[in-house]
Design a protein around this nucleic acid. Sequence first.
DNA 1: CTTGAAACTTTGACTAATCAAAATTCTCCA
DNA 2: TGGAGAATTTTGATTAGTCAAAGTTTCAAG
Lengths: 223, 223
Amino acid sequence: MATSTVEDYLKAILLEEEREPGSPVATGRLATLLTVTPGTVTAMLKTLADSGLVAYEPYAGGLLTTAGRQLALHVLRRHRLIELFLVQIVGLDWSEVHEEAERLEHAVSERLIERMDEMLDRPAVDPHGDPIPTAALKVQTLDYSTLADLGAGEIGLRCRVARIADQSPEFLRLVEKVGLRPGRKVRVTARDEAADTLEIELDRGRRASLGLRAAGKIFVERV
Amino acid sequence: MATSTVEDYLKAILLEEEREPGSPVATGRLATLLTVTPGTVTAMLKTLADSGLVAYEPYAGGLLTTAGRQLALHVLRRHRLIELFLVQIVGLDWSEVHEEAERLEHAVSERLIERMDEMLDRPAVDPHGDPIPTAALKVQTLDYSTLADLGAGEIGLRCRVARIADQSPEFLRLVEKVGLRPGRKVRVTARDEAADTLEIELDRGRRASLGLRAAGKIFVERV
DNA sequence: CTTGAAACTTTGACTAATCAAAATTCTCCA
DNA sequence: TGGAGAATTTTGATTAGTCAAAGTTTCAAG
């Protein structure tokens, strides 16, 4: 059995690989994500390599092996199902479930996860719009564009918020305040390169402005 | 913050102290309960003593301090609330929730526990009939007698099953099969000292016989 | 009392995970 | 192409938890 530390490393690598497919995840990047020192990451990458979970190339970084990816997907599935369970069934706020799931994902049994999956009716995405790997560890790939990508030639296009790519409570509370929870309708009305902002219009004519950096974390789907 | 190992030791000591109030819990007993070697327990008792959680007397054993008892009660509260939540809300079988809670009790936040408590309507007992410490860590002391205690002069007395004092899946499945889940009505109809058994009658005239050892783990309340 | 078995403690060693700081390697720019 | 500086690895140490086995203490039975 993998320790919860090992699970954390594998999950972090998986998530990073997703952002930059094919290229190894750097030691320093992992050190930042996991808030440990680079030396610690080097040591762990070696032991992960010894266990056949990671392909480690000194000075380059690590890539998941098939076995490592399976394990990481397992953890990710647990994480996202737990998040959704906590929001839907327990009624916790979606801005606080990430941290909670971060601990619970290492403690739940397969039995409990299966039961949650059933209660939630085999959901496809978690409260942030991130896809939940199936029991067979298949991940639905979603191809959305961000609010920031929009706005160039697509001012005025009606969209639906699909995914929020930043789990931090601060960001989620902002998203909540502005009214950009997944599922909401949104339209970019103007783009101000100088001010580095986007003007958007929500349901019921509500308007707001958003920095481009923030807009880059809001994924939308055309409707 | 206490590690989950520390929490396990404290909980084990609390539960043992309950069985034999006032007398220190022996090193060997803890070793058995926690499936570690006696030497390991000695080492841990010392560090618990250094942290002010346990009063440790070499060759005698350990007793919880006030601080240690508080922490242990906290863990016990989490454990029992989780068990009840898993049975009532998630629909897991009561024979399988103990193990699950054993892991989750170290991973849930105060926030989540409070929410579960609320969802379950501030319950007083867990699925096995064990009292759940309140948020203020008060434990309701329940004074029941066991089925084995009964039967002497109280043949025929109508009782209600209140508590099952053995969490092992095997025992719980037996209890389930016989029909002695907490809340059920039961009557001792005969006692056979030679055969070491008890004859009992359940709802709807169903009859069964039970070894005295097993009967000693079934707590009942007169009705 | 004495003594021997049972219970307990001590000792030395190990694993997993971590850090600080020194040593090495890489990379890119002048 | 040759450093300088950044990133990475190495080294030496530490902490928590654990075991096996050797050494003590306790206690009850003779």
